[in-house]
Structures are given as structure tokens and as C-alpha cells.
């Protein structure tokens, strides 16, 4: 195991390939996220951006390529389509430091909001319950739904559910956060309350990778934008250059279509 040094990126992906049967979804993607980076992944549906995000915390297993987390490389067993992580304890350790926020919120339906937030800290990280509750209440306060702590997710609006899901993600005290289209399932007015929270987190210097259809969000919060097309990085750079001065024709077309939509 390599010692983490200051220069190690929090997340480093190299040559990620992923296919489902004959369908190649990712064809060699490299991404490096240093501490405090907010990276937006944009691209049309089917470009592989969500798959890429899910490969990072190993909800999907990529068949080729390296994943490094804070300088520690994922150990694999097997090769090609049969490749699996070799060390389940390592997978769990990495997942607990990489909180994910999902498009459809995915709050656990049988638990109240508060229980959702303390669940993984208590059962996975073995934190003391009372402490976890205090921290959870502070986080719910931060995302503006402390008054909903004892309510079940189905009783909340989409925006409130997503903010609860963000509080759940923060409760892990993660080294990095993965957002999988966090605002796509929301009405425009509910979207704004979630965008506000994400913007606030970006402002705090959290390391985040964000898959989004919302170009305004990508432009506002990220310091690096990656445009994926058919499983490869077509173009990347600062939001100013990607949005202000797109070089490839595909990105120009994509941005044009996004604005029109």
C-alpha cells in the first residue's frame, strides 16, 4: 500500500474500459480529481458518464484500467470480463470514503430521514449512535430540513429528499462525493434548492465528481469540465474554455442542443 502524499489525487482513473456484452460503454477514460476539485461530467445520454461514476465506487466493475483512491490502487483478481476486486475490505473502505448521491435519491424507504442519515455511520463505520445523531441533526440543519428529521422519505418533496440524501452522504465524512445527475428528477423550482446545497459544498472546497445535464450548474460549480462522447473524453478543460470556446464540433453541437432544450 502506498503512503498517501500531498500530491496524490483523491481519485485517479486511468484507461477505464467497460462494456456490457458487446456494447462498449467506456473506451479508455482518464480522470484525476485532486483535493478540492469539482469535476463535471457532461455528455449526451449513453455517453457513459453515469457508468463511469459508478465504476469509481465499484457499483460497476470496469474490465480494464486502474482506479486509485488517495494513492491506493484497487487490487483486482482475474482479467477482462471476469475481473473482480480482490479485496472486499478495500472496496468497503473506499466506498465509505466516497459518498454517492443518486438521481432518484434512493433514501431507504423504511427509515425516517434521521435514520437514513445515521444508518451507514452507525452500522458500517461503527460510530457511536448518540454522536451520529448529533452530527446528523447538524447536517440536516445545514441542508435546511432539520424539521423533517422524523418523517419518512415518501412524505417529502423531491427536493427535500435529495437534500436528505446529501446529508446522508455528508454524514460519512467522505473524502470525495459522487453526484449522479442529482437534479434531473426534480422540477425546476425544487431543483434550485438542491443546486444551492451543491454550490455551497463546492464552495467549502469539497472534492466532487458530478454527472449532470444542467450546464448552468456545471459552469457554476466546477473547476474542470469533461465532455464524454461514446465512451471517450472528447474534450475537457476549465468551464470557461469548454463552454466559452468549445473546440470540437461534437461539443459545439451538444452545447447548442443543451441550450435549445
Amino acid at each position: 500500500m502506498t503512503q498517501q502524499s500531498k500530491s496524490d489525487p483523491v481519485i485517479a482513473l486511468r484507461g477505464i474500459h467497460k462494456s456490457y456484452d458487446d456494447l462498449m460503454v467506456l473506451r479508455g477514460v482518464d480522470i484525476r480529481a485532486h483535493e478540492g476539485d469539482v469535476i463535471s461530467l457532461i455528455g449526451s445520454s449513453g455517453s457513459g458518464k453515469s457508468t463511469l461514476l459508478r465504476c469509481i465506487n465499484m457499483l460497476e466493475i470496469c474490465q480494464q484500467g486502474d482506479i486509485q483512491f488517495c494513492g491506493e490502487a484497487v487490487r483486482w483478481s482475474g482479467d477482462g470480463p471476469g475481473r473482480m476486486p480482490a479485496d472486499q475490505a478495500q472496496v468497503v473502505r473506499m466506498r465509505t470514503q466516497l459518498s454517492m448521491v443518486f438521481q432518484s435519491f434512493n433514501l431507504w424507504a423504511h427509515m425516517t430521514v434521521l435514520k437514513n442519515v445515521i444508518e451507514a455511520p452507525v452500522t458500517v463505520l461503527k460510530r457511536e449512535r448518540g454522536e451520529a445523531i448529533d452530527e446528523a441533526m447538524a447536517l440536516l440543519e445545514k441542508v435546511g430540513i432539520a424539521d423533517k428529521a422524523h418523517i419518512y422519505p415518501a412524505q417529502l418533496s423531491g427536493g427535500q429528499q435529495q437534500r436528505a440524501a446529501i446529508a446522508r452522504a455528508l454524514a460519512m465524512r467522505p473524502k470525495a462525493m459522487l453526484f449522479d445527475e442529482p437534479t434531473s428528477a426534480l422540477d425546476p423550482e425544487l431543483e434550485q434548492e438542491v443546486v444551492k446545497v451543491i454550490r455551497q459544498l463546492a464552495g467549502e472546497g469539497r472534492t466532487m465528481i458530478l454527472v449532470t445535464h444542467d450546464m448552468k450548474l456545471a459552469r457554476d460549480v466546477s473547476n474542470h469540465v469533461v465532455f464524454l462522447n461514446q465512451g471517450v473524453i472528447e474534450e475537457e478543460g476549465s468551464p470557461e474554455t469548454v463552454f466559452g470556446n468549445p473546440k470540437t464540433e461534437r461539443l459545439q453541437k451538444f452545447l447548442h442542443a443543451s441550450v435549445a432544450a
Binding site: V92, R93, S99, T123
Partner: peptide, 13 residues
């Protein structure tokens, strides 16, 4: 499925 997947994503065995 997403209820279980989320639990996995948060490190549950």
C-alpha cells in the same frame, strides 16, 4: 434494486 445498491454504495456488506 436501488434500495440495495445504495446500501452497497455506502459500504454495507
Amino acid at each position: 434494486r436501488n434500495q440495495l445498491e445504495t446500501a452497497e454504495a455506502y459500504g454495507m456488506s
